[in-house]
Design a protein around this nucleic acid. Structure first.
Length: 608
RNA sequence: GCCCUCAUCGUCUAGGGGACCAGGACGUAGCCCUUUCAAGGCUAAAACCGGGGUUCGAAUCCCCGUGAGGGCACCA
């Protein structure tokens, strides 16, 4: 009966129902569900029928899993009329054409996010300090989105809070972005068609539009002093009233306003928010978000110093800079309804919003901040500034890769990828809305992988500043010789410092005889003496020749015929480090002269 | 207090009603290799926040809790 339904057979809705009905009587059909597939990614689900009496039948007479028959039709809703492409599953997926039927009518509820032809996005930090890793992540996502859609990435400086502006911060932020390779197409340093890109230089524009709102009854002047507002908030707190501006100046009569103005009382301009109803907007990452309008304050748009607050400045700038998408941090969600209403008051089209998840402290308590010094499980300090990552010896491509993996998933199981491939696959819909901590240990792993890809010469060059910084003046030839051996041992560039310490160690090395004996090496001193002679005379003094000769000596002297035991103690003898690069490279980097000196000291120590 | 957001191994995540006794990665542990430490290879332990509901079937949809984060500034 039902199981004889063959692939390719036309099944009408009514016959589908007949099948269900008949099968239900036999106690084999459980349910039928339908999924629409408008494209390969987005799915709508609609249950069209779950056979009447089905639950009872199943409960009364449980069907073994193997006999549970499921019909499921997956079909693509055609744009026009006609037959839709469908598949029907009966125990297994089989493909069948299925005629259109009203039973299958599906509401359009899941439209794919549209990306307009011209993408213009911005990263707009406040110049209050260095580039924060969370800011860098926001910048990275904006940048990836812009590059993906061949759009424009804009750097805009939001310096309307003069009190918090720090000299040199703009340059520091730009340095951070440059180090990461996030290049901008328009910005304060390079200009652009929509400049200036520093908000304090656009003050007149904000004033103009604040006045426009005033004239069109979307805003009002507020003469409240800070003291007054503090008192108000205090009162609200004590009396458990809703916290926020009570809109007392909203109802000032024109005469009262004129009087206060005549008295030269400073004022701010506040937005006249709708008092009832709700504001909703679509978030590209979170879907629809609704706010009761009562929750939205009559926020200040223009401060008494004549500069705008963020709310006004960002709306005006995003409009005039023709920003198409706003991707900003989570913490802006609650002000989004204000912005929506501002756009509405101006009559401007709203850019698409997407609120990125915040980055949490490793403890999970609070968001990652540069003010609260945090520590990892291993006690190391949590890096927060981009510059700190650089100084710790991370590579920019590793940091980018790392950041891209937090809150976004590349769509494959590959965790290591180039920025270019991430750009190609970047979609706003794939951003995970959940806040996350930075998995720093993954950064170490990734950085190690990137280091292993480096050519020895490039790696040596990259290592140089770190060694210089530690006061180690390694000669280039020696450095280049140990670099291949060093490479797989490095997670961070700065890890090279302890490895190469032996090159600068005080003489003599602080070793004790018992550190240099090995069970498998009965005549240690003799082996060292032979090694000494060999090192003194070997020509040329190369890693390969050293390896060859010392291996032979080791094999000869060890009781198990393997070079290992000797090489181990020998390495310790010449480096004095429990952990160091391998012996041959270390000897080479040390140079013949110093190698001989150290070995002689060891022999003296053992024979004393 | 009010409002908003979020919730899968320790961590970053996959997951869009049956393919999941939940997959990958880092980290951790063990073994192999080995010249110390790494790297590399193999193996293992390790999660659907709780409770209801819808459904034949829920990690997935809905509701209620709980927890975490954010906002309620003349800061952004």
């Amino acid at each position: 009966m039902i199981l004889s339904t063959q692939p390719g057979k036309l099944v009408s809705t009514s016959s589908t129902r007949a099948i269900i009905g008949a099968s239900l009587r036999m106690g084999v059909i459980a349910a039928i569900t339908v999924r629409r597939q408008p494209n390969n990614n987005a799915w709508d689900k609609k249950k069209i029928c779950s056979g009447p009496g089905c639950p009872t039948a199943v409960k009364a007479n449980p069907i073994p899993k193997s006999r549970l028959v499921i019909i499921r039709a997956n079909f693509i809703m055609p744009v026009g009329n006609g037959i839709m492409d469908a598949s029907l599953r009966v125990c297994e997926y089989i493909t069948l054409p299925l005629p259109r039927s009203s039973v299958f009518s599906i509401s359009q509820s899941h439209s794919p996010t549209e990306v307009p032809m011209t993408v213009r996005v911005r990263f707009s930090p406040s110049p209050t300090g260095y580039l924060h890793i969370g800011g860098a992540r926001t910048a990275l996502f904006n940048w990836m989105f812009a590059r993906k859609h061949a759009g424009t990435f804009i750097l805009r400086i939001e310096d309307t809070d003069q009190k918090r502006t720090v000299p040199g911060a703009v340059e520091a932020i730009m340095d951070g972005l440059r180090w990461l390779g996030l290049d901008w197409d328009e910005g304060p340093d390079i200009g652009g068609a929509y400049g200036p890109y520093i908000q304090t230089q656009r003050a007149a524009l904000y004033q103009q539009w604040a006045n426009w709102l005033l004239e069109h009854d979307h805003a009002y002047k507020c003469f409240c002093t800070e003291k007054e507002l503090d008192t108000m908030r205090q009162y609200q707190k004590e009396n458990k009233l809703p916290i926020g501006y009570d809109r007392r100046c909203r109802t000032l009569t024109p005469e009262q306003v004129a009087a206060k103005e005549a008295a030269a009382i400073p004022y701010v301009i506040r937005f006249k928010m709708k008092l009832e109803g709700e504001t909703s907007f679509h978030d590209a990452i979170r879907g629809q978000i609704r706010f009761p309008n009562q929750q939205v304050q009559d926020n200040i748009l223009l401060k008494s110093d004549g500069l705008p607050t963020y709310h006004l400045a960002n709306v005006v700038d995003d409009h005039f800079m023709q920003i198409s998408h706003i991707m900003r941090a989570d913490e802006w969600i609650s002000t989004a309804p204000l912005h929506v209403n501002l756009y509405a008051a101006f009559g401007w089209a709203m850019p698409l919003l997407g609120h990125l998840p915040v980055i949490l402290n490793p403890s999970g308590k609070g968001k990652l901040s540069k003010r609260t010094q945090a520590f990892n499980d291993d006690g190391s300090q949590v890096l927060v500034k981009v510059q700190e990552f650089q100084e710790a010896g991370y590579l920019p491509q590793a940091v980018n890769n790392f950041l891209a993996n937090v809150g976004w998933q590349s769509g494959s199981d590959e965790e290591k990828f180039t920025l270019a491939s991430a750009v190609a696959r970047f979609r706003l819909e794939d951003v995970n809305p959940a806040p996350s901590r930075l998995p720093y240990s993954k950064l170490d792993w990734l950085n190690g992988l990137y280091i292993q890809e480096m050519e020895p010469l490039d790696l040596a060059k990259a290592l140089k500043p770190f060694l210089d910084g530690a006061g180690y003046e390694v000669n280039s030839e020696a450095l280049l010789a140990v670099t291949p051996a060093l490479r797989p041992r490095l997670k961070r560039l700065s890890d090279a410092i302890p490895f190469l310490q032996f090159l600068f160690a005080e003489q003599p090395l602080s070793l004790t005889p018992d550190q240099l004996v090995h069970k498998q090496l009965p005549e240690g001193a003799a082996a060292f003496r032979e090694a000494l002679t060999f090192i003194e005379t070997v020509e040329p003094y190369t890693v390969d020749r050293l390896a060859e000769g010392l291996r032979q000596i080791g094999e000869k002297h060890s009781s198990n015929g393997k070079a290992g035991p000797f090489l181990g103690v020998m390495r310790l003898a010449v480096t004095g480090q429990e952990v160091s690069p391998p012996l041959f490279e270390s000897l080479y980097a040390l140079g013949r002269g110093r190698a001989v000196t150290r070995l002689q000291q060891i022999i003296d120590l053992l024979t004393a």
